[in-house]
């Protein structure tokens, strides 16, 4: 039966695409972990070192798109949950997710989806320098999403007033996060030029 055969072929092709999606999701989850483990550049004029974790999260969204980007972050969170020391400061285990900073990790999932959705919009419409500008806006949009979950979580966990939580949980990281969003935008733009077939 030709219809059965063609149905079987399209089934197999769909399955192959799922395998490729899985591979991309797994590699980007590993990329987020690797960027978290690589020592970040110490913030200029401050002794607070920052990790490149949010760079990895933003890249996952911008390069893979909203669905696979958010899935890559979820897989990264699962790696932390099953006990691999891949959270910032070489921490791991269930305590990281339920701790005071767990909200940021949950916010990362939403941020990757938002960044991914917006950067796909940008890359569909623009090329070159215009695309980089648009991608910068898309990557910056992830920052308030992370804070929107992380800061109230921190405030609730610590029982501190929201304004204070905003100071210690958002303003301290803002400059670093803006720099990392800019890096993610430049990288995504370069990757879109090097591997255009990925973004079709």
């Amino acid at each position: 039966m030709p219809t059965d055969a063609s149905a079987a072929v399209s089934d197999t092709l769909a399955q192959d695409n799922r395998a490729r999606d899985m591979a991309q999701v797994a590699v980007f989850a590993a990329l987020i972990a690797a960027l978290t483990l690589v020592p970040g550049v110490p913030l200029i004029g401050s002794s607070v070192p920052f990790t490149l974790q949010t760079l990895g999260v933003t890249l996952a969204g911008a390069v893979l798109g909203p669905r696979k980007g958010a899935l890559a972050v979820l897989v990264y969170l699962a790696m932390i949950a099953v006990g691999l020391p891949v959270a910032s400061g070489y921490k791991g285990g269930l305590g990281v997710l339920t701790g005071p900073t767990g909200g940021y990790l949950v916010g990362f999932v939403l941020a990757a989806a938002v960044v991914g959705f917006l950067s796909r919009l940008v890359l569909r419409r623009a090329q070159g320098a215009k695309a980089t500008g648009g991608l910068l806006l898309a990557c910056l949009a992830g920052i308030p999403v992370v804070y929107a979950v992380g800061v109230p979580w921190l405030a609730a966990f610590a029982g501190m007033p929201f304004g204070r939580a905003l100071q210690v949980g958002a303003l301290v990281f803002l400059i670093g996060d803006v720099i990392k969003a800019a890096i993610a935008a430049v990288v995504t733009s370069a990757v879109a030029r090097a591997l255009p077939q990925l973004f079709r």
Binding site: A19, R20, V27, F28, A30, L59, V187, L195
Partner: peptide, 25 residues
């Protein structure tokens, strides 16, 4: 710099994902 380090890392990762995807298929 971003272009000498971050871009190659991401492109290498994507190539790695291609290889892994083909191996799964």
């Amino acid at each position: 710099s971003v272009s000498s380090l971050a871009v190659p890392v991401v492109i290498r990762s994507l190539r790695m994902a291609d290889g892994l995807g083909e191996a799964l298929v």
